[in-house]
Design a protein around this nucleic acid. Structure first.
Lengths: 129, 129
DNA sequence: TTGGTATTACGAAACTCTTCGTATATTTGA
DNA sequence: TCAAATATACGAAGAGTTTCGTAATACCAA
């Protein structure tokens, strides 16, 4: 209790970097930058600075045992997704997850297989009650 | 074509004000401020400035025919919700609405009635295909 | 060894968001 | 009428984000 990190609110750039780390595992600044720079015009020191700030904020940890530091996300993708979703549910959808779900289903494509998985999940939820 | 407003990205304060206008209809700055200030310590001129900036950005329009201007949201709640959801689906959930839905259902409470509505919606979606 | 390359650290500029003080104009009521 | 209250406009400060230049340091190869 009381030991939880403040709720995550990564900026857009920070989320970009987190996603790279989630997908690729621990990385050097150079590695993150190569991936980052393949989608976006950006300087190396910009990537470095972003990651240093994220480290200072406690979003990333780093292994400094060699000169070239290795960075690691300190928050899991799943946890980050949950928190960002909670925030939008609270801020935009009056706290109603169901309202968000219906808005999402009503306006965004989902494959039959995905819809089937969702139905399955709904059944499990009902059985639990 | 090409006549669409840029995608909405209201700041937190702007979203607060939009919600007040969506729920209460067109308002003066004073009216918005009273509601705003009941939840938050904030000065009148701050509310005014926010609304002026939103007007400049094209988020709000205003009737200036009398000295006390009347502000109106230029975007519907439904459209704003869709756009914000699209953004988070794209940025956080790899573009998969289904992944967002499952994360939301898996971790946030929804009542039986709501779950039932969602199932109904799913059935409608399947029939449409 | 030493000069080039890669890395981190630092700081500052530009931009946005939020906040509010002050100035100015309008309305109102005593 | 005219002072008080109310409204808008304007500008600026402070915080956070993004950007990058420059400096200092470490590494490596010829």
């Amino acid at each position: 209790m009381f030991d939880q990190l403040k709720v995550l609110k990564p900026t857009e750039s920070e989320l970009d970097i987190l996603k790279i780390l989630w997908e690729n595992g621990d990385c050097t600044v150079r590695q993150v930058h190569e991936i980052f720079a393949s989608n976006k015009e950006i300087g190396y020191t910009t990537t470095l600075k972003l990651m240093q700030i994220m480290h200072a904020k406690g979003l990333l940890e780093r292994d400094e045992s060699s000169k070239t530091h290795i960075y690691k996300a300190l928050v899991s993708r799943d946890k980050a997704e949950k928190q960002m979703l909670s925030k939008i549910i609270k801020d935009v959808f009056d706290g109603s997850a169901a309202r968000l779900v219906m808005q999402a289903l009503g306006n965004h494509q989902a494959s039959d297989a995905e819809l089937e998985k969702i139905k399955q999940l709904l059944n499990e939820l009902e059985n639990k009650k």
